[in-house]
Simulated scan of single mutants.
Amino acid sequence: MMANLFSIFEPSSSIFSLSTNWMSTFLGLLFIPYLYWASPSRWSLMWSKIIQTLHKEFKALLPSSLTGTSTLFIGLFSLIVFNNFLGLLPYVFTSSSHLAMTLSLSLPLWVTLMTFGWLNHTQHMFAHLVPQGTPFVLMPFMVLIETISNFIRPGTLAVRLAANMIAGHLLLTLLGSTGPSLSLSILSILIFSQILLLILEAAVAVIQSYVFAVLSTLYTSEIN
């Protein structure tokens, strides 16, 4: 019996007082050599197709002066989706379920975008604080609301990703912990429901990675 339900998310494994669970973040690098095989595998062809599709979509969202930055968001999507998928495997630590990981992705990106925007497109950034067609009386309130929404963007990106990863893993853990006390007939139903939840978690892993990358792209398009 677990003393704390959230203990499954604690990076407790260590060697020489160094946490080793966080090394699972870089397990996606093991898939890179597949892209350089002389004869492309089905995996490499599928991944190349996904990257091309994402590149076209991000290129359409970004302004012409920032088209090359689509590579950054493709890399961001790749890191998150590999991390989410590998976290579904047994005994693999899911670092994307921690705010320390998700904030380290969203906060530097947001700070960089804000710094670049306010230094190079100051008037444009000020214009974004007041939407077009806003009545004069409501302008101070709109400036306040838009300022707050800008400041909470890295937090919403980080919390959205971490909360979705935590919710699915907790549900799988809660259902799995009831298995030893169930009869054989109910256990078969539990296993079937666990398989369905695992498929749902795989879909959530892709969707949340895509949402994180697309929202980052939209935030980038607003600074130019």
Rank of each mutant, 00 (worst) to 15 (best):
S95V: 14
L190C: 01
V214Q: 06
F141C: 11
I191G: 06
S19D: 08
V130M: 01
K49C: 06
L175P: 03
P33Q: 01
Y210W: 09
T67L: 15
L218V: 07
A203Q: 12
N21M: 13
F116Q: 09
G75R: 05
H128K: 13
L182H: 00
L218Y: 06
T115R: 07
L79Q: 10
W118G: 06
T25N: 07
S78A: 13
L30G: 05
L61Q: 05
L190P: 04
M101G: 12
V211A: 15
F77T: 00
L172W: 02
P40K: 01
I148G: 04
L175S: 08
M46Q: 12
L99F: 03
P154I: 08
F192W: 07
Q208E: 14
T71K: 15
H128Y: 12
H98R: 14
L86A: 10
N4K: 08
I32G: 06
E57Y: 14
P135V: 00
T156P: 05
L61W: 08
W110A: 09
S14C: 12
T67Y: 13
L76S: 06
F77H: 04
A158C: 05
G117V: 01
N120I: 08
T217M: 14
G117L: 04
A203M: 14
S95F: 08
T25E: 08
L86G: 07
W110F: 11
T173A: 12
S97Q: 07
Y219T: 11
L61G: 11
E57Q: 15
G179F: 02
N164W: 11
R153D: 15
P33S: 03
L79N: 11
A3L: 15
V81R: 02
M101N: 09
M1F: 09
F26D: 03
A205Q: 01
E57W: 12
R160H: 11
W118V: 09
V92T: 07
S97V: 12
Q123H: 13
F192P: 04
L157A: 05
S78M: 11
V159G: 09
T147C: 08
F126Q: 11
F141I: 14
F16M: 10
A158E: 00
G75A: 13
L107Q: 03
E222T: 10
I80N: 01
I186S: 05
I186Q: 04
G155R: 05
K59V: 12
V204W: 02
V159N: 12
S96H: 08
E57I: 14
G155S: 09
M1W: 04
K49G: 06
N120L: 14
L119Y: 05
W110M: 12
L109V: 00
P11V: 01
L27Y: 02
I195C: 02
L18T: 13
P40G: 02
S19N: 13
L79G: 07
T147Q: 06
L171Q: 13
F82A: 10
S44N: 06
S13I: 14
L197P: 07
